[in-house]
Design a protein around this nucleic acid. Structure first.
Length: 834
RNA sequence: GCCGAGGUGGCGAAACGGCAGACGCAGUGGACUCAAAAUCCACCGUGGGCAACCACAUGCGGGUUCAAGUCCCGCCCUCGGCACCA
């Protein structure tokens, strides 16, 4: 009697798989379909947590299933190895970032191997290696050539904690994404940007192609993030001043006859000029300063009181010719549209509140299509719906929709405006004043200005042995042998760029590198990428729904233009898995509720852990970690193991013959039950893998199957060994994608040859899954009153008759008039009485 | 405020418009044991009944249907995203 010893079994089979090179993906194999399955590459923090574990378990189950179905599966992993924590470790503990990073990678790799994830380790990449990051530099230079990378002095989000600039995407509610108690500050410095906004429409259009393959919520989040908005740009001349007109952006040009003021953001570039010479500008300057130092937490901004002041200047409404005051208002965003808006109190709630406070006139210029007409003195809030224009000169009487079009066209014809589309998406600021990242490959020369480093001088290596202090500007500026160089154009002295790239660059194209990970002439071979791409299935956490996934799509579009790839979207299907929670909260060190993957594997074995994560919740939902729950999975695997062990000896010598068909005419009753249950389970588990990805129900089905096998004991009576061997083999094969080690062990115990990796996923047979007799509930007026057992192929009329004749039904129906009888074939009978 | 997802036993959860609660956890009773653990068997939504059985029950209120957890309309609550975006 063997004992289930997961530690022994798991080590044993991992060695076998490694010896057979079982997870190697074969480039350009035309003999079978390819399947590119990818999980998001982890940041090597050192600990592999349950979120990773869940992600890789789902991926591994699919990878193993697909291999059994005959696919050439590419299932790679790598390390997102650049980034701040390594630098912080260096500052705090004096460990060089590379050493810290590589030792973390080694630890996490060991855990991945301990879990038996079926990765092709020959394709492992680490983004902090020069062999990888030189291609970040290469991509940057291609973008520089095409004007997609550019330098601009700009107001940036500065995190005092990180001592660096953050992308807009890394600012969450005004706080640093890494330090949620540190408010982000504004700072002006020269920065490199990637022109992602050039692809706003392309990224938006691409969403249509992704529909169906990507979760809808992710696509909606991306659409919102891009934030396309159609409107009109209108120029208001400044009265009594020879200066540039003020441009405003509005989506409601139809309300322009109701303008009471032009509102400028406190950071508007024309303000100094407008304010110059205005009486009391000293006091105004004070107010302005106070306003510019507003709170940066967006939630507070949204709820903050609207304040503003009159500049002393006036602007002219180009449609009506009316003079309106120019104000500065704290709620006007400098970064969106033109940084200036027209205030229409009657038709915009914010303007309404502003007008109430500062006693600006309210003029109704759009009336509702039906109901009582509005008047300014009876309004309690702005009317923001479309309607019919009133008091709007030649446009009076038009519907809003038509007015918007006509007015934009007229503005363009008369030269004071135009229809315009704006986006919320901004260019991607990639400069980081940090050390542990990809050096930006440009030099600054007195003669030639900004010069890209020529391709044959790549990579620009990140110098190591650098003392890090964590203070002020870029650490690389303090390394003279890095900083001082010669200009590639004139040969004269020049200085290198000392900022490094945002690490999101690394992860924007890494999945192409897996197709050709050791190429030293190009980021990847076009033919190899063409063979493997698109990614058939990408799996990761929903926290990457915006940043990583939108940057990756942008890179793909650029790569398409560079002729490197033929497709426009890198990922065909995306799956967002839920979080792993403990006591209702996300596991985190600060909450002290972290369950380490390796501890769990030591205690129960990784197969038990895999089974539990698949069983406890459907993969897209959050999973509440429960110690008792995992005990249950351990019990189940023990039970299966004992069941197989009990019969293994008798079955070992029996040949497994899939072509032998169980003949239901001669089979024993017990054989029929077992074979049917096996094929019914197989049918539904196959469907779970193919369509629904609800592995929790797959596990439940297999448990039911095992319960049935146990209930039919003794299985050495009335069951032919050949039949039992097939039934148990089906059980083991179905378990393999989820709990591969114990499945392999049981496969061997049954005397089967080879490894399961060489086996085909068994095909279920409808004829073997079909029941001869089925139980049909019989309802009277929609309530179940009886159940009748009938032959599965009984026709509707006979079924109806049997239902009516049932001993429990007949008295209920007797003497009553039957209005109708609903018969749902193979499902139910409902007798409706009058 | 806008957008999205979701509310089903003590808990995690099942359920092509067709028997609500599969499967598991916890719990209760029993077998095995000197005893415990492990294992095995039985029970396990609420109320009534000795029982067969009956009634009620999927956040709340309506509706469609022979039949609604599932579809439609109106609310409430929870979670996630966006947020003074003009």
């Amino acid at each position: 009697m063997a004992e289930y010893d997961p530690q022994r079994i798991e080590a044993k089979w991992q060695k076998v798989w490694a010896g057979r090179d079982a997870f190697r993906a074969v480039d350009n194999d035309a003999s079978r379909p390819k399947y590119y399955l990818l999980e998001m590459l982890p940041y090597p923090s050192g600990t592999l947590h349950m979120g990773h574990m869940r992600n890789y378990t789902i991926g591994d189950a699919v990878a193993r299933y697909k291999r059994m179905c005959g696919y050439n599966v590419l299932h790679p992993i790598g390390w997102d190895a650049f980034g701040l924590p390594a630098e912080n470790a260096a500052i705090k503990r004096g460990i060089p970032p590379r050493e810290w990073t590589n030792s973390n990678i080694a630890q996490m790799k060991a855990v991945c191997k301990r879990f038996g994830f079926s990765y092709d380790w020959q394709r492992e990449i680490s983004t902090c290696e020069p062999e990888y990051y030189r291609w970040n530099q290469w991509f940057f230079l291609r973008m520089l050539e095409r004007g997609l990378a550019y330098r601009k002095r700009s107001r940036v989000n500065w995190c005092p904690q990180c001592q660096t600039v953050l992308a807009n995407e890394q600012v969450i509610d005004g706080f640093c994404w890494q330090h949620d108690t540190t408010a982000v500050e504004a700072k002006e410095i020269d920065q490199w940007f990637l022109r992602i906004t050039k692809y706003s429409d392309a990224l938006l259009d691409g969403v249509k192609d992704l529909a169906g393959g990507w979760p809808e919520r992710v696509l909606i989040m991306q659409q919102n993030w891009i934030g396309k908005s159609r409107g009109t740009r209108v120029r208001f001349a400044v009265a009594e001043m020879k200066t540039d007109p003020l441009e405003i952006f509005t989506t409601r040009v139809d309300t322009i006859y109701g303008v009471s003021a032009v509102l400028l953001s406190p950071a508007h570039k024309n303000l100094p000029e407008l304010l110059a010479g205005v009486p009391g500008s000293g006091a105004i300057g004070q107010q302005l300063k106070a306003m510019q130092q507003r709170s940066v937490k967006t939630e507070e901004i949204a709820q903050a009181e609207k304040i503003g002041f009159f500049t002393g200047r006036f602007a002219v409404n180009p449609f009506s010719g009316q003079r309106v005051p120019i104000w500065v208002a704290n709620f006007v965003l400098a970064e969106y549209g033109t940084g200036a808006v027209m205030a229409v109190p009657a038709h915009d709630q914010r303007d309404y509140e502003f007008a109430e406070k500062y006693h600006l006139p309210v003029k109704v210029v759009v009336q509702p299509a039906s109901g009582a007409p509005l008047s300014a003195d009876r309004m309690a809030e702005a009317y923001v719906e479309y309607g019919r224009l009133a008091d709007s000169g030649p446009y009076t009487g038009l519907a809003s929709e038509q007015a918007i079009e006509k007015m934009a066209a007229d503005a363009a014809a008369k030269g004071f405006g135009a229809a315009e589309t704006t986006y919320r998406l901004k260019d991607w600021g990639i400069s980081r004043q940090r050390y542990w990242g990809t050096p930006i490959p440009v030099v600054y020369c007195k003669n030639d200005g900004v010069v890209g480093v020529p391709d044959d001088q790549l990579p620009v290596r990140l110098p190591e042995n650098v003392t890090l202090t964590g203070q002020g500007k870029s650490p690389l500026a303090l390394v003279p042998e890095f900083l001082n160089t010669t200009c590639p154009k004139c040969g004269g002295p020049a200085e290198r760029e000392t900022d490094t790239m945002d690490t999101f660059i690394d992860s924007s194209w890494y999945f192409y590198r897996y197709t050709d990970p050791h190429d030293d002439r190009a980021p990847f071979d076009k033919a190899k990428a063409a063979y493997w791409f698109q990614i058939d299935q990408y799996i990761g956490g929903v926290e990457h729904a915006i940043l990583h996934l939108i940057y990756s799509r942008f890179f793909c579009k650029v790569m398409n233009e560079l002729g490197l790839v033929n497709h426009r979207e890198p990922v065909k299907r995306l799956f967002s898995q839920g979080m792993v929670l403990k006591d209702g909260a996300k596991m985190s060190k600060s909450k002290g509720n972290v369950v380490g993957a390796i501890d769990m594997a030591d205690k129960y074995g990784c197969d038990t852990g895999r089974m539990y994560t698949l069983f406890a919740a459907p993969p897209e939902k959050d999973l509440e970690w429960s110690e008792q729950g995992i005990e249950g999975s351990a019990r189940f695997l023990n039970r299966v193991f004992r069941l197989v062990d009990k019969h293994a000896e008798r079955l070992r010598a029996v040949t497994l013959d899939w072509s032998a068909r169980t003949d239901f005419a001669t089979a024993t009753a017990k054989e029929k039950v077992l074979v049917r249950k096996a094929h019914q389970t197989l049918k539904r588990v196959t469907n779970d893998f193919e369509a629904r990805w609800h592995f929790n129900t797959s596990v439940a089905l297999i448990m039911e199957f095992v319960n049935e096998l146990t209930a039919q004991e003794p299985l050495d009576q009335d069951v032919a060994p050949a039949v039992l061997k097939r039934v148990l083999s089906i059980l083991v094969l179905m378990l393999f994608p989820m709990t591969p080690h114990v499945a392999e062990e049981m496969w061997e115990m049954l005397g089967n040859s080879g490894t399961i990796g060489d086996q085909k996923w068994p095909a279920y047979r409808e004829d073997l899954a079909r029941e001869e007799q089925i139980e049909i509930p019989v309802q009277v007026n929609g309530r179940v009153r009886a159940k009748v057992v009938v032959e599965a192929d009984l026709n509707d009329d006979d079924l109806k008759e049997r239902a009516m004749a049932d001993a429990r039904i007949a008295p209920l129906v007797a003497g009553k008039e039957v209005a109708r009888v609903v018969v749902v074939p193979k499902k139910l009978v409902n007798i409706v009485l009058k």
